[in-house]
Amino acid sequence: MLMRFMQRLFSLIVTLIVASILIFCVIEVLPGDPAAFMLGMNAEPEAVAALRAQMGLDAGLVARYFTWIGGWLTGDFGTSYTYRVPVAELIADRVWVSLPLALYALGLSTVIAFPIGIVAAMRRGRAADYGIMGATQLGIAIPNFWFAMFLVVIFAINLRWVQAGGFPGWHDPVAAIRALTLPAISLALPQASILARIMRSALIDTLDEDYVRTARAKGLSRSGVVRAHALRNAMIPVLTIIGLQFSFLLAGAIIIENVFYLPGLGRLLFQAINQRDLIVVESTVMLLVMAVVVVTFLVDLAYAIVDPRLRR
């Protein structure tokens, strides 16, 4: 177990280093000079050069990479070119929207997907199964921004239960959660549909296993077998998908954030790219990569908790 942990930790660190170099290089080759962009079309070359020096853009590539990484290690991500505030502050504000939203959506997706996936698997080939499979097909097919607008029309405009958009901040937790509810539902719908289908097929596979028959021969009922034996065995593919979905939800909510005017990481990234605020882009992308890598690491550890054969 320790061996596995150390191996995974090592590969996590290597992945992060490689990713940081890649991100840095890609940002470097992007067209558009931030200094020129900030000073406008008619700026004097001397002024641009002076600004470049001030921003540290004239130092060598390697030196700038280490300045950036050094800053990361000490929590100093630099200062945004356009907003003139520390990048760390900008990102921190946005993380407090995106992270709860991702967790909220993932929680909803799991809570919906597990029971319907289990019911579909246990009633395989019957009406309930066909109904659930049809519904999940629809859930995957509907574009989530369209579904989001549909929710806004019903719950914000007609019923007036929630605001149509915006985020009030966490000083009023109830209002904050209300503001995140419709976005979370719109994000969760396709995710829950996918997860339910994975749950169903993984469970159907395990229900065909010999040990399920052994358990039935011991006197377990059909549902008892699912609870005691099949469910945990079906968890490996389900955990994989949950890990992928979390990473996606953290960064992939750009469209939904735009529909609901949420100040999340996705919108921050989108605006920063438009404004050539490359220092913000760099650090946001790095943060998202970190989230993905860390979640993968956690999912890997979760495999070992589920399956003793992986504890070596």
């Binding site: 296993e209 040990y211 028959r213 052994t214 021969a217 011991k218 377990l220 009922s221 399956d307």
Partner: peptide
Amino acid sequence: SERRMCARRGRDVGMVFQEPMTALNPLH
């Protein structure tokens, strides 16, 4: 009934299968 039959299986009638490599739950 299926419920009463569950109470018989394992208690009054036991069963052993062909393939020992897969007859046990790998996680328990």
